[in-house]
Every structure is written in structure tokens, then in C-alpha cells.
Deep mutational scan, measured.
Amino acid sequence: DHDVVPEDKFQETLHLKEKEGCPQAFHALLSWLLTQDSTAILDFWRVLFKDYNLERYGRLQPILDSFPKDVDLSQPRKGRKPPAVPKALVPPPRLPTKRKASEEARAAAPAALTPRGTASPGSQLKAKPPKKPESSAEQQRLPLGNGIQTMSASVQRAVAMSSGDVPGARGAVEGILIQQVFESGGSKKCIQVGGEFYTPSKFEDSGSGKNKARSSSGPKPLVRAKGAQGAAPGGGEARLGQQGSVPAPLALPSDPQLHQKNEDECAVCRDGGELICCDGCPRAFHLACLSPPLREIPSGTWRCSSCLQATVQEVQPRAEEPRPQEPPVETPLPPGLRSAGEEVRGPPGEPLAGMDTTLVYKHLPAPPSAAPLPGLDSSALHPLLCVGPEGQQNLAPGARCGVCGDGTDVLRCTHCAAAFHWRCHFPAGTSRPGTGLRCRSCSGDVTPAPVEGVLAPSPARLAPGPAKDDTASHEPALHRDDLESLLSEHTFDGILQWAIQSMARPAAPFPS
């Protein structure tokens, strides 16, 4: 592969990997390779389809078979030569091979799209000592099968071997295949498990690692696999990028399955594409389908809103127990993405979901129960707010008499603000006073009005108090039968009158 990737590009890729991570280095090298001529790309395919690569990765054979028959990708048995050289000459001794072996032994695996480039050397060096003999053996194999790289107009793939297949390693990572398949204008990513390549439709969760975000852009890794992070704060999961590491605690105790298979379609829109997988259930989501939507993949363990709600429900009964003089119970939860139609709101002032922060849900004790107040519409209280300059209440639009249902020339009671006709409430011909108009209920007259088809109010509507207090003497005590009587009149003013009279009014101040 030294004929494909020059030394300066190799060093530039290593520097970019240390600065921005393996995914960015892979993407940059792939983009550079696509700008080369067809001879360089053909050399790339020839390096990929060597015999030892085909033996190690069985899924490469179907890719090789898909090439046109007129494309010669065979390799000479006596060494490598550029395709432009007409004579089959043995190339001179390859010093770059020693360079590659020494550099890969030092860096474990470079971040390139060629056999030198995919593992994360920093994480491997940190986690190597417990498994040094086995990992050293794996390093000797890295130059042979560490990076199976493929690129063409139909298929483009980048393979990364790992030393996680050490025997006896619980939940060992089998390997990473960062794979971009450009077929019919689409893009897919796969993962390699035990020599087999699994596409998103049959993606397997190998051991402790999972394909957290099938994305090839942005600074985030394709698999949430930063070796420096180790395990999740809650004892979460091992990262795919942690090559040759000792077994780590796999999943939280509440995880239903340690080796679950995540779905390959969004649980909201039932469509495929780039998904984020939940650590607590097999569901996966688009970032845009979450509520609120996320802009980037959160670091650490992530769970959907259903799993978060289940966790909150487990903690909430203990938080609601009476604990005198104790601060509110704080339950730190990872930043969760909410699927459509589901929402768990945190306290005000918290950062938005999706940031690399930890939301704190506070379970406050329930407030003391209070008697429910009568629910009145805002339009129902409008007549009470229509007060004239002299303190006389004006008529609201649409006000109707509670007896006849007519809204023409209605009066407004100064005591309960109900609309009424003087002739309907006082049919006996009582003279109307000039000021202080009161309806039949507030004036103490319980004589029913002779209106055909309208039920008369119940005599129990009024329960006047002592006459010594004029204001308190007109406080009506309405009961269920009074409400039914008012409802039978089918008037809004009657219902409003009952609601206003049912509310307690402050006692009249004593004259000074």
C-alpha cells in the first residue's frame, strides 16, 4: 500500500487522527484517494484483494465477484509491481515495509483507509498491559489484515481490525468495519463480527460495544468508541475503539438485554438511515425525530424517553415518601432524547437536551391539597369587569335574561352582576328603583315568574340570613337542586349567576 499512500500523506493522516480522531482521518484520506487517478484506485483494489485478505475476510469475495470481468485485479505471486511496468521484474528490497512494521508496532494501528489505518492507538496503548502477550500477537497480524480498504464507483468500504477477539475476553470487541457502500446513491455502514460483515439490516451488537450512531460526518466517531472515555459513568459499556482492553462492566443492572439487537429503522417514522440506538431497549431513532430533536450524538450512555420514564417511576415512589426537613431528592440522569409524543421536562434553567451534561430531575413533595375552585371561562368573567365610571356595571355583549332568554333592554344586578328583565323577575308590577337594581334572587323575592315553557326556580334557592346585616342577608345558599333548576333554563347567565354566588365573597367592612 506504500505505492498507493505516500509517506507524507501517511504522516498527515496520523497527525489528523491524533488531533480530530479516526473518523475524520478516514474521511480525509478517502476524499484524497478519490481525487487520484484511476491507476492509484486500481492499485488500491489490488492491494485489498490479496489472497491473505480474501482468506481472512470471507465477505470480500462477493465484492470481488461483483467487479466487471474485464477488470484485472489479480496479484502476481513473485511480488508487487506497478501496473504500468511491462516487465515482470522483482521490485527492489522494500524498506517501507520495515517502516510500516515499526510504526504500526509503535502506534498499534494508524488512522488511514489502508491496512495502516483504523484502530485507535492511544486507547490501545492505555489498555494494553493486562493483555500484552495476546495483543502483541495481534499486532503482528495487523499489517496483514488490519485495514481492508475498498473503493469503487459501486462499493466503497473501509475495514478496521481490532485485537478484541482475544480468547477469554468477556464481551470482547470482535472488530470495527467502517463501511461506506455507495449503492444507488445511498450510504450504509456496517460492522465486522468474527470475520463476517453485518449491514444495518442485520447488524449484531457484538459483546459490549454497539453501533451508536451510523454517521460518517462530524467530529463524533462512527461508533461511540473513545478509548479514553473507558466505561460509562454508571458502569455503562465498553467502547469499540478500545482495542485489546480488559473486560469492562457491560450494562447497567436495569438493562433488559446485554447482547440485544437494535432495530435498523426509526421507532417514530419507521424509516432507515442514520440512527441513534438506545442503551436500554432495542429501539433506534433519527436525531430529527426525537422531541426535542438533537443536533449531535450525546457522549456516554444514552437512553430513550421510555427508558428514562421507567427509571424515574422506579425512583419516584421512594422520593415521595414523607421525609421531614430533607432537601428534594435529586436523581442524576443521562441526557435523554425524547421520541415524538413523549416529553420529560427538567427543571427550568437546565441546558437543552443533547448537550454533554447531566440533567437533574428533582422530585419535590406534593403540595397540600386544596379545595378545587369553580372553573370559569374568561368570557364568563367579562360582565364582572365591565364597570362604568360611576361604579355601575355596563352590559356585556350577548347578555340575556335568565328567565325569558331575551337580551333586549336587559338590566344588570348590582349584587350578582346577572342580566335580567324587571318585568320577568317582578311581574307583579313592583316599581323599579332608580339605583341599586337587584334581581329577584338578590332582592329576596322568590315568586316564580309566569313564563310559559320555563321551569320556575326551586323555592330553596334563597336562604336569607339575619336582617340586621343587609349585605350578609342576601347571601344565597345554592344546592344541587338549585343548579339543576338553573340548568333547565338553558341560559348561560343562569349558570354564571350560580357560579358567582357559589364563590365566597369577603364580608362587608363594618362602618367606622
Results as ranks from 00 to 15, higher is better:
242 Q>E: 13
242 Q>R: 10
242 Q>A: 08
250 L>N: 04
252 L>P: 12
255 D>R: 11
262 N>P: 11
263 E>M: 12
268 V>K: 11
269 C>D: 05
269 C>P: 03
273 G>H: 11
278 C>R: 08
278 C>K: 12
281 C>P: 11
284 A>K: 03
287 L>H: 08
293 P>C: 13
293 P>H: 07
293 P>S: 08
303 R>H: 07
305 S>G: 11
306 S>M: 02
306 S>Y: 11
306 S>A: 12
307 C>E: 15
309 Q>V: 07
310 A>Q: 04
311 T>P: 11
311 T>C: 13
313 Q>V: 04
315 V>K: 09
316 Q>I: 11
319 A>Q: 06
320 E>Q: 12
321 E>I: 12
321 E>F: 14
325 Q>D: 07
331 T>G: 03
332 P>S: 12
333 L>D: 08
337 L>W: 04
341 G>R: 14
342 E>H: 15
345 R>Y: 06
345 R>Q: 07
354 G>I: 15
354 G>A: 13
358 T>L: 11
358 T>C: 05
359 L>E: 03
361 Y>Q: 00
363 H>I: 12
365 P>W: 15
366 A>C: 12
370 A>V: 13
371 A>S: 10
378 S>H: 08
380 A>R: 09
381 L>T: 12
384 L>F: 14
386 C>H: 05
388 G>W: 14
389 P>V: 04
389 P>N: 12
391 G>K: 10
395 L>C: 07
399 A>I: 05
407 G>P: 13
408 T>R: 06
416 C>I: 01
419 A>P: 06
423 R>W: 00
423 R>C: 14
425 H>I: 01
427 P>Q: 07
428 A>W: 10
431 S>E: 14
432 R>F: 12
434 G>W: 12
435 T>L: 12
435 T>I: 12
451 V>D: 02
456 A>C: 13
460 A>D: 07
463 A>H: 13
464 P>T: 11
465 G>S: 05
466 P>I: 12
469 D>F: 14
469 D>K: 07
471 T>G: 09
472 A>P: 10
473 S>L: 08
475 E>L: 04
476 P>G: 11
476 P>V: 12
480 R>T: 12
481 D>G: 03
482 D>G: 04
485 S>W: 08
490 H>V: 08
496 L>R: 02
498 W>G: 01
501 Q>P: 02
501 Q>G: 11
504 A>G: 07
506 P>W: 06
506 P>K: 01
506 P>A: 04
507 A>R: 02
